[in-house]
Amino acid sequence: MPESELTHWPVQRTCPFSLPAEYEKLRERSPVLRVRLPSGFDAWVISGLQDIRSMLTDPRFSSDRHNPGFPKIAEGLVAMPDFRASLNEMDAPEHGPKRREVLAEFTVRRMKALSPRIKEIVDAQLDLILRGPKPVDLVSTLSLPVPSLVICELLGVPYTDHDFFQTRTQAMISRSYTPEQRHLATKELLKFLDELVTAKVAEPTDDLLGRLVLKQRENGGIRHREIVELAFLLLGAGHETTAASISLGVVAFLKYPEQLEKALSSPEKMFDAVEELQRFFTIAEAAGARVALEDVELGGVLIRKGEGVIPLSNLADRDLGAFENPDTFDIDRGARSHVAFGHGMHQCLGANLARVQLQVVFESLFRRIPGLRPAIPVAEMAFKADSEIYGMHELPVTW
């Protein structure tokens, strides 16, 4: 195998704005390669955008982590036998009806209707920031509180418990934690949500989980564990990914002020900016991991039944054949074919919610604090290179 080939995965990002050097060597060919994972298992990685989109819509690939051969990335980290992450681990035909149960909660129209409330939440956080000392860490004062408050209101989770669920989520997605610590964090969060759902079954509330309880009760009976697992998925993904996108988006706008100026010129341009930010950073690179249910040829390579497949979404969203000058942050490109939110039936359920939050945050932040600037060089900031969700540990800013 040539020295330029990728042999081990994951590959750590060393710069938030650029691909890892190992990925640069693969781009022109977009190969499908066999790699060794930290767990000691082998899996296939896919690097081409079209190959990834094809794989994510092919029913011959399963998202169920309990299937033998599903990529086990971390050593000792295996699927818990009594738990699955709700919709993310369901295949057809089970997936469709379960997704439709909650799909109406995340329509574009419903998310736009939430926009005024999201703005209230953002402005309240900005009020606190402007009254406080400088410099300030934008992660702990804006990026994390805003999506946490929003998803708590949407689901009906008490925000007073935010420290509990944020720390558990961090433990679950960080590669620096041991498998035992990650399993414990998962169990603790499940127990917390089990008790919450039990309370909503006894007394349904006017929120997503409460409405789901009533809907299931009317349609034949409450599926308690399913609601707990859905709450687990939505709570974790609903705050951590958006928080990461807020922080990285702020850094990008500060680095490229001409793009910020365009974004602030109209709501349509801000929408384009948010979409380009998703492509540019692609924070959840391996979210679409699958296992082959039968022999499948992909990208000219035969993947055998039972072999794991990992999409290199970060690399695919910089595909030279799909995007012109893909390493340039350009909100005018109108990129809609990226896979930052996934693709196919497992496309991120909360994508519309994330888009609205990001538009409101960037619009409010940069209009209310036009002199915002990094308090330390970006090169000295701590990025989450050890996490399943790329983001920032801290974002010190001043004005």
Rank of each mutant, 00 (worst) to 15 (best):
P10M: 08
V11L: 12
L19W: 06
K25M: 07
L26E: 05
R27S: 12
V35L: 05
R36W: 08
V45G: 03
G48W: 06
L49C: 09
D51I: 13
S54C: 13
P59Q: 05
F61T: 02
D64C: 09
N67R: 08
P68A: 11
I73M: 10
P81W: 14
F83S: 11
L87P: 01
K98T: 07
E101A: 08
V102C: 04
R110S: 13
S115C: 12
R117G: 00
I121P: 03
D127W: 12
L130H: 15
G132Y: 15
K134E: 15
S140P: 09
S140Q: 10
T141S: 14
L149Q: 04
C152T: 07
V157W: 13
V157A: 14
Y159Q: 03
T160I: 14
R168Y: 01
A171G: 10
S174A: 07
R175L: 14
E180D: 11
L184F: 12
L184Y: 15
L184G: 08
T186F: 06
E188R: 01
E188S: 01
K191D: 02
F192N: 13
P204V: 09
D206K: 10
L212F: 06
L212R: 01
Q216G: 10
Q216P: 06
E218P: 09
E226W: 13
V228P: 01
E229R: 11
F232E: 00
F232D: 00
L233R: 01
T241C: 07
S247A: 15
K255C: 01
L260D: 06
L264K: 01
S265C: 13
E268P: 09
Q278D: 11
R279P: 04
E285H: 05
A287L: 04
A287W: 04
G288D: 04
V291H: 08
V296C: 15
V296S: 15
R304Q: 14
E307P: 03
L315M: 06
R318K: 15
R318Y: 15
E324W: 11
N325R: 14
P326F: 08
T328Y: 12
D330W: 03
I331G: 02
A340M: 06
H343A: 03
Q347W: 04
G350K: 07
N352Q: 09
V356F: 00
Q359F: 00
V360Q: 00
F362S: 06
S364R: 07
S364T: 07
S364W: 03
R367P: 01
R367N: 10
A375C: 07
A375Q: 07
I376R: 05
I376V: 08
P377A: 01
V378D: 04
A379F: 13
S387R: 10
P396S: 14
V397S: 00
